[in-house]
Design a protein around this nucleic acid. Structure first.
Lengths: 117, 117
DNA sequence: GTTATCCATTGACAAACATCACTTCAATCG
DNA sequence: CGATTGAAGTGATGTTTGTCAATGGATAAC
């Protein structure tokens, strides 16, 4: 982990003055940060990461009843995780008769991925 | 949002049989999912997303005292968020006298970004 | 030494979260 | 119709999280 730091050696400020100039922070980032955090938060659980992973590999072909046995969780809990992903815009769902099929919405992941790089 | 679904229409199963074959799930994904979730979870707060954003733009040049005024938060709270990022391996810190400098560890973000695509 | 400054830690609290057992809803089959 | 099935919703519970006030620790200036 070699990071070139270019540290700016600071000196103790004269009493009564602020330690340093605050870095200016564009307000534009604000809403973007909120959105990125929303997506990241939804992915902040191993179960949901795996759900996304499975859905990505079987887009549109997986119903909830196939997902449940993959995790040592009750069906309502899996449904809950799917809802979290849905609320974050990461997955969508479609109902066909008794079955609900889930699929990943690639744009959501792409947006976060882009910000990360 | 046009997703090609290729739904597999299922028929109601004969009584007593499972609804469908569970999708096989390689156990290799497990630990990877845990790691991805760990990073994502740490990014699951707008403040921390903004912290990473600022640190990325000023690598190695930002001390905590510069970060605090950017957020309408107390210094301990900012310290807490930095610790969360540090525990997730997203940022590192270096102490120089009174000041603590934080910097982003790009690999952590890159790993998540790669998985997302 | 004493004092001031930067930062981390602790303790406390409300809010949010993950989970399950139970229930409800919708659709299918007989 | 009634019975059954897949999935979502509810309520409850224990855990985690975000936040701050207060404190502690280390370093620099005096």
């Amino acid at each position: 982990m070699m990071i070139d730091l270019e540290l700016v050696p600071k000196q103790k400020r004269p009493a009564g003055q602020p330690c340093c100039e605050p870095v200016v922070y564009p307000d534009v980032e604000r809403e973007h940060a909120v959105r990125m955090a929303q997506v990241a938060k939804a992915l902040g659980d191993p179960v949901r990461v795996q759900l996304v992973d499975v859905l990505r590999k079987h887009a549109g072909k997986v119903c909830v009843c196939e997902l449940v046995p993959l995790f040592d969780l009750s069906q309502p809990t899996v449904s809950h995780h799917l809802k979290v992903l849905r609320d974050a815009g990461i997955v969508g769902s479609e109902r066909r008769g008794l079955w609900a099929y889930y699929f990943v919405i690639p744009e959501a992941l792409k947006e976060l991925s882009a910000w990360l790089m």
